[in-house]
Simulated scan of single mutants.
Amino acid sequence: YLGCVLQARKEPKVQEFGRLWQQEGGKVNSLLGLHATPERAALINGFAAHYLDFDDVQANFRGHPSAVIYSALLAIAPPSSQVRQVLQAFIAGVELAGKLGLALNPDHTVQGWHSTATIGTIAATGALCNLDNASVDQT
């Protein structure tokens, strides 16, 4: 994930996208070094991570889970979060992505849906809920 972002941040279109979505006064830095709200930082990071498509692929998911899940986690995780907590939340998100992908694919992909955008959003939400120790009702 980080390798993808670090390589993509040099790309003119990624820099242009980041500048478009940055927000002065935002408390969260994107991985491109831009200030943004958490939502915008997740978007900027996700765009950069997915731009070159060098990242991971999960077979059942048929997409790139890290681009969505890590982007959301890094934008939301408080500085006091331990690496173990973030990794545990990431794993929970990838597991959710795989289970949803197994249930929905191949029809989902054959119909033209891109799992990174569709299932990935749900998986990222699951990862954020895991990081926040949300209850079933909160989730």
Rank of each mutant, 00 (worst) to 15 (best):
P79G: 15
K10R: 14
A59K: 09
Q138M: 04
V5Q: 10
D53Q: 13
L96I: 10
N130R: 03
S30D: 08
V83M: 07
G25S: 12
A123I: 03
N105W: 12
Q88T: 04
P12W: 15
G112R: 14
Q82Y: 07
S80I: 13
V57S: 11
Q88P: 00
V86F: 04
A48L: 08
L102A: 14
Q22F: 04
K27A: 12
E24N: 11
V86W: 04
D107W: 11
I91W: 07
L31P: 01
P79N: 14
Q138Y: 00
P78M: 15
S80K: 15
V94T: 11
E16R: 15
A123V: 05
K13R: 15
G18H: 08
L102Y: 12
A97R: 03
N60I: 04
L32Q: 02
E39L: 00
L102P: 07
E24M: 04
H35L: 09
E95A: 03
F54Q: 13
Q23M: 11
L34G: 01
V5N: 10
L52Y: 11
P65R: 02
W21A: 06
V68K: 06
K99M: 09
R19I: 05
A75L: 05
A42N: 01
L100D: 09
G46I: 05
T121Q: 09
I69D: 03
L52P: 01
S135F: 02
K99V: 08
P79R: 15
S135V: 05
D132E: 09
T118R: 11
N60D: 15
G93P: 02
V68T: 11
V57C: 07
F61G: 09
P79M: 14
P78G: 14
R9P: 09
H64V: 10
G93A: 07
S30Q: 07
D137F: 06
Q15G: 10
E11R: 13
A42F: 00
H35I: 00
A123T: 08
Y1N: 09
A124F: 04
A97L: 06
L73W: 05
S80Q: 15
E24H: 08
Q15L: 15
G101P: 12
R19Q: 12
I44Q: 03
D56C: 09
A123L: 07
A123W: 05
T109S: 15
S81Y: 05
V110Q: 15
T109G: 12
N133V: 12
I91V: 10
L96A: 08
S135E: 06
I119M: 12
A89G: 06
Q85K: 07
A36I: 07
T121F: 10
Q138A: 03
W113P: 01
I69N: 01
A134K: 08
L128E: 01
L102C: 11
N133Q: 13
T116W: 09
A92T: 08
A75R: 02
G93F: 02
L32G: 02
R9N: 13
D132L: 10
L100Q: 14
Y51F: 14
L2F: 12
A8P: 06
G3F: 12
I91G: 03
A127W: 01
Q111L: 15
L73N: 06
D56A: 07
H50D: 10
N60E: 14
L6S: 13
L131H: 02
Q85F: 05
T121N: 11
N133G: 09
P38A: 00
G63Q: 08
L32T: 01
A8F: 10
N60K: 13
G46K: 03
G25D: 10
